[in-house]
């Protein structure tokens, strides 16, 4: 290999590395931007058996519609071995009852993996006396014997982009650092 070819090779490698770094910066920038779309608000629910969770809100235009996200860690509440194996487990460990009224599943749930945690997600509608019907996505993920449960709630039909935004936020460092810091024993 002559010196010219070697120099071209080095230049190409450097260009590739610079490009990859730029892409990475762009991706992490996007993630950071996506995370910034969510504002933390006070946990709005009354005291119950579990410690209070964290509540976030995302409003248009960052999200397609106004969306509220409620997250809770429930230490020791998950089946350590089968995890969140079926839709009933979402009802068993989840927090949808906090919304009040009656909630009904709108479809069969599906598996979901976020931040390396496996579980299930399912769409619900929530009817409450004298209130407009709300739409919710119930999420339950297992971190060994601990459960991370989440609700994505909106007064409008939840658009796929809002669902994706919520998933991306849960998947991101802001939530997952918190999850890993306090659960997984």
């Amino acid at each position: 290999m002559n010196a010219r070819a070697l120099a071209i090779g080095w230049m190409l490698t450097a260009a590739l590395l610079l490009g990859a770094a730029a892409l990475d910066r762009s991706a992490s920038g996007e993630r950071a931007g996506a995370e910034l779309a969510w504002s933390e608000v006070a946990w709005p629910f009354l005291t119950d058996a579990w410690p209070a969770g964290r509540a976030f809100s995302c409003a248009p235009p960052a999200c397609a519609e106004k969306v509220d996200l409620y997250l809770r860690l429930k230490l020791g509440f998950c089946n350590c071995y089968s995890g969140v194996a079926d839709d009933d487990e979402i009802d068993r460990v989840g927090d949808l009852a906090l919304l009040g009224g009656e909630y009904r599943a709108e479809a069969v749930g599906r598996p979901l993996e976020l931040g390396g945690l496996s579980g299930r997600v399912r769409r619900f509608s929530v009817a409450q006396f004298n209130q407009p019907r709300r739409h919710a996505i119930g999420i339950a993920l297992a971190n060994r014997c601990d459960a991370l449960v989440a609700m994505v709630v909106s007064e409008r039909e939840l658009s796929p982009s809002s669902e994706e935004a919520a998933f991306a936020f849960i998947d991101g460092g802001r939530v997952m650092d918190w999850v890993r810091r306090f659960s997984g024993s």
Binding site: D91, G94, L96, A97, E102, Y103
Partner: peptide, 8 residues
């Protein structure tokens, strides 16, 4: 049944 599952 549907809704929250009573304590096991």
């Amino acid at each position: 049944t549907a809704g929250a599952v009573p304590t096991e």
